[in-house]
Design a protein around this nucleic acid. Structure first.
Ligand SMILES: [Mn+2]
Ligand SMILES: [Mn+2]
Ligand SMILES: [Mn+2]
Ligand SMILES: [Mn+2]
Lengths: 152, 152
DNA sequence: CCCAACATGTAGCTAATGCTACATTTTGGC
DNA sequence: GCCAAAATGTAGCATTAGCTACATGTTGGG
């Protein structure tokens, strides 16, 4: 019988952990894109247009930073824009926006449900949202549905 | 009376949202540092040493990437190392490791408590952990404590 | 209708985080 | 004790994401 108490051999454990970190790296890379798409959708809905300056102000970055990122969104088929004309979302961009906005709402609602104050829930959700899998999101939704409502 | 239904003026809402995104950006910048420190602490505990190659394998990156990041940890007073001798944590590094490891455990335990499968909980926690405020972490701990235990 | 304010865009810098290619150092098996 | 494999390190490249400085385009108030 084996003297070592390991359930999985060390090499396999390393591979698993590497895969987890790779997954987190990938999510981190997509986080900014998701925030831009979400903000553009919000602006288009509330103002009818999404100007680079407004996007930059919402994010708290210089307008040049926003312009450069918007160029990447265009390159990746998520947005389009004519010079001096504001930014619009492609079909793919709109699909991402719907998904990202719903997830954002769910994460905020969930944090509030477990007793986090609204302002703090908004802050934490802005980061957490990008790392929540479908399975975890479902667990959040299940929990919200089963919890007693505030309004009662 | 005001025809507009806004509770907060638009400018103020923009400032709030910008602050939330700034907070998330700041957390994102620290995430990699936290993972390195956590992994180094794990290796020191299990193997008695933390070699750059082992750190790189755990993260799933090239060893040169790890070496460059370790240089940053040293620059920032979190680690020290002699050439060809492996990496060690300073007092500050050890303090960060304790905090980060405890938080990681809490996030995983919390996700499992709400019904996320263990493997998925580990994956999601690897990202989520870096964006959880003290207040949210407390809410997680409260919930874990109040939930029925598996082992019963 | 013009011009000043504002929005937009370009150029170029820095830092972080990844990579590959290559060089050097250490170390363990024979 | 040698030497080949493994570990470590250096150099240099790319991309992302931030910045400032400056240039150009648009537009509305007087
Ligand atoms: Mn976000
Ligand atoms: Mn969001
Ligand atoms: Mn992590
Ligand atoms: Mn972790």
């Amino acid at each position: 019988m084996n003297l070592r108490e390991d359930v999985a051999p060390a090499a396999e454990r390393d591979l698993d952990e590497a895969a987890r970190h790779a997954s987190a790296r990938s999510a981190r890379a997509g986080a900014l894109t998701e925030d831009y798409v979400e903000i553009i959708a919000d602006l288009l809905e509330s103002d009818g247009e999404a100007r680079p300056t407004d996007i930059a102000r919402r994010l708290g970055v210089a307008h040049t930073t926003a312009i450069k990122t918007i160029a990447r969104l265009k390159r990746d088929g998520l947005a389009h824009a004519k010079p001096y004309r504001g930014v619009f979302l492609t079909e793919a961009g709109q699909a991402m926006a719907r998904r990202v906005r719903a997830r954002h709402q769910t994460v905020v609602a969930f944090l509030r449900t477990i007793g986090v104050r609204p302002e703090v829930a908004e802050i934490d959700a802005e980061g957490i949202e990008h790392y929540v899998s479908e399975e975890t999101l479902s667990a959040f939704e299940r929990f919200i549905a089963s919890a007693p409502r505030d309004s009662d």
